[in-house]
Write a protein that binds this DNA or RNA. Structure first.
Lengths: 151, 151
DNA sequence: TAAAGTCAAAAGTCAAGGAAAGTCAAAAGT
DNA sequence: ACTTTTGACTTTCCTTGACTTTTGACTTTA
């Protein structure tokens, strides 16, 4: 069924719903889920990236730990920073998804709107061309700009 | 002799009569029907296309799966007719605008959503002008299709 | 006793391998 | 002729393990 990584992700999100930042031991968590410790890193980098609105800090050695914090952002500020620099000139599907996910998490767009944004990011919605990623970047920025203007 | 594809189709339709939205593993299903996995794709593309009123999403890799969702066609006939025929293969800016205007008038999309749709319809410097209208048609259809998915 | 050295216990990195779905064209039915 | 079916190949995502780096606690030494 659903992969172990998904369970770990849900677990962490659950913890984060209690408080804004959490601290955990990598090995302990790995043992709890019966997986290798480095899989924790995999989950963190793929699902809790800065792009998705999370900040990871950690400490090695004795008494080491990992801290995961949700980034607090002003909505306008986030939109603006995405448009002017955050997105850049080229945007692959993975990053597009992360960004849209975050806009939804931060309640900047509704679920419906997120789906609209995502639909415009699909390869099948773009030209079959090498410049696909560039196209994506331009389109997303254009769409976000309209959101910015409205409020 | 009724083809295996027909059985698979009936099977899926049966599942969809229970819930509006099902998730299945491709390999498992293929094994169940004693056919090759890629035949599942064949069935999905020939019998469960958006034009026929279905939406397919999937994930690869470990824990991967395919989800099939039935589209609500009764309540949203306008969307449906636009997607399957109304928009066609090519769409200039004027037609795009009037379609979006109509969607808003009919209260199928909010003002914000209309703006998002419109933003994705703008000409982009990156696109070769000749292909522009085709691009627009594909993108708009893609976006409307996702709206159908939600109830 | 304070600086330096040692060690084990963390976490990090990365590449290889595995698991699942996607694609496409050729073969096989009808 | 047209639809089905298959299999080889591709792409995407997940999992692991071997190796590295960092740290705090403990030990040694002047």
């Amino acid at each position: 069924m659903s992969a172990v990584s998904d369970s770990i992700e849900r677990f962490i999100i659950e913890l984060l719903s209690e408080s804004n930042d959490i601290e955990l031991r990598r090995n302990q968590l790995a043992q709890y889920f019966g997986c290798s410790p480095s899989q924790i890193n995999y989950v963190l980098t793929t699902r809790f990236s800065p792009e998705k609105g999370y900040l990871i800090t950690s400490k090695r050695g004795g008494g080491g730990h990992i801290t995961i914090a949700r980034i607090q952002t002003d909505k306008q500020e986030l939109l603006y920073s995405l448009i002017s620099g955050g997105i850049g000139d080229s945007l692959d599907k993975g990053r597009a998804k992360s960004i849209i996910q975050r806009l939804y998490n931060e309640k900047i767009v509704s679920l419906r709107e997120a789906h609209l944004l995502w639909a415009a990011m699909e390869d099948s919605a773009l030209l079959p061309h090498a410049a696909c990623d560039k196209q994506r970047a331009v389109t997303l920025k254009r769409m976000l700009t309209t959101l910015l203007k409205e409020e």
